[in-house]
Simulated assay, not measured.
Amino acid sequence: MKLAFGCDPNATALKRLLMTEATELGHEVVDYPSEDPVYANVAIRVAQDVVAGRADRGVLLCGTGIGVSIAANKVPGAYCACITDAYQAQRAARSNDANLISMGSQVVGPETAKVLLREYLDGVFDAASRSAPKVDRIRDYEATGV
């Protein structure tokens, strides 16, 4: 899987650690380096590239994970879940078909972040699941505004 990683300056160390973890798991990694404290800029770039298919999934990091998630979710077709535990990481992919995740470098420790990344990457959305109509409703609203 091709993964796009982006962060603000607060999360550079965690991004590097997770990129190494992803590489060791056999994934291709694309780094979106940023010294820009305006985290929305890198989050939007990563989300745009995931939506355009230049990456399969994205991983965004900032101090809390919240800001980059909000910014990414403004890109039509981007579905970024801010995660803090293994269950959320699993469900982001399996139940919600999230194509991006975000984490906070001041919220989760490095070992927990690696577990969250692995759980998310192992998840596959089941279009026949009971979650599918819920995800379809989100996409319908995005497309029609109704």
Rank of each mutant, 00 (worst) to 15 (best):
D56N: 04
D56C: 01
R57H: 13
G58A: 12
G58I: 11
G58L: 13
V59T: 06
V59H: 12
L60N: 06
L60P: 07
L61F: 14
L61V: 05
C62Y: 13
G63P: 01
G63W: 04
T64L: 06
T64V: 05
T64K: 05
G65V: 06
G65M: 05
G65A: 08
I66T: 14
I66W: 11
I66D: 09
G67N: 11
G67Y: 10
G67Q: 06
G67T: 11
G67H: 14
V68T: 15
V68I: 15
V68S: 13
S69W: 12
S69I: 10
I70G: 11
I70V: 14
A71H: 11
A71R: 12
A72Y: 11
N73V: 08
V75W: 14
G77Y: 15
G77P: 11
Y79N: 12
C80F: 15
A81K: 04
A81T: 09
C82R: 13
C82E: 12
C82S: 14
C82F: 08
C82L: 10
I83S: 03
T84Y: 11
T84R: 13
D85P: 00
D85Q: 13
A86N: 07
Y87M: 15
Q88F: 08
A89T: 03
A89S: 07
Q90W: 04
Q90C: 04
Q90M: 08
Q90E: 09
R91D: 04
R91N: 07
R91F: 14
R91G: 04
A92N: 01
A92G: 06
A93I: 02
A93C: 05
A93F: 04
R94P: 00
R94W: 03
R94T: 09
S95V: 00
N96A: 09
D97M: 05
D97Q: 09
D97T: 08
A98C: 14
N99R: 14
N99G: 10
L100A: 10
M103T: 10
G104T: 05
G104A: 06
G104W: 03
G104Q: 02
S105E: 07
Q106P: 00
Q106A: 11
Q106H: 07
Q106M: 07
Q106E: 05
V107W: 02
V107I: 07
V108A: 03
V108R: 07
G109V: 03
G109T: 06
G109D: 07
G109L: 03
G109I: 02
P110D: 12
P110K: 15
P110T: 12
E111I: 14
T112A: 09
T112G: 02
T112K: 09
A113K: 05
A113C: 08
A113W: 01
K114V: 06
K114S: 06
K114Q: 11
K114G: 05
L116Y: 10
L117E: 01
L117G: 00
L117S: 02
E119M: 06
E119D: 10
L121N: 07
L121W: 08
L121H: 09
L121E: 07
G123D: 00
G123V: 00
G123Q: 01
G123L: 02
V124D: 14
V124H: 15
F125N: 01
F125T: 01
F125A: 03
D126T: 08
D126E: 03
A127Y: 13
A127L: 13
A127E: 14
A128F: 14
A128G: 12
R130W: 01
R130K: 06
R130E: 09
S131G: 04
S131T: 02
A132I: 00
A132G: 01
